[in-house]
Amino acid sequence: MGALRRAWIGLTGQFAWRLRPAHMLRSFSRTEQGSALDMFAAVESTDRRDIRKKYFRHALDEWRHAGIFRERAREVAGPDAVESGREEAGMLVEHGIVGGRTLFERLGERDFLAFVFVAEADAVEQFGVYARHGLLDAGTEAALERILKDELFHVSYSKHELDRLSEAEGAAAARGAVRRIRWSRFKEGYLRLSRDIGHGMSSLWLLALYGLVLPPFRLFARLEAPGWQAPPTEARSAADALMSEA
């Protein structure tokens, strides 16, 4: 599984780093920024006062990494490059509060630690593959080296804390949490891919609909005239109007 993953990272990296290096760096920046949010939220939520400082330091690292990646993206892309709104929106979906709860609240402390461990270990592996395949320019490689040192600390402290938290139930509990997280990350990756395919397909369908169905209506449609107009007449009572979506 690990070899397959590394091969996939190497293969996709070949294209991604050659064709869209700034996009790659910006997406790393957003991921780090999102991780910082998740870690700060964990500082607020955890009941284990002895671990707060590690979460806090981890969050600060992630925030700093986001800045390094963002700066590097700017250097690679040049001053005129504009980040698309869609890329920005991507971060909103995956971090912060989802369904009213933070990642820590959704997972609980043990699975949260397992998540941190798995995500950080995956990142270290991913950066390693890029370096081994020689995909990075010198500036980006130097930036990654600065970050990698912190990432290794994140891997080791999260594993240590996960083991410590699972001490009472034995090593199997920690291994179980890591397995659950690996599976859920695989499932999320699959769902993300499916969603992207679905988005692409639905865009095509809607575009076809647009081209085929809308043109006749265009003959009758007009934009609103400028200037003051009378407010829409309201035949309903205020109470009835309040209950309506239209």
């Binding site: 005239a225 003051w228 107009q229 009378a230 407010p231």
Partner: peptide, 8 residues
Amino acid sequence: LGEVRWPH
């Protein structure tokens, strides 16, 4: 009392 409408 009145309104100016989109897209203005």
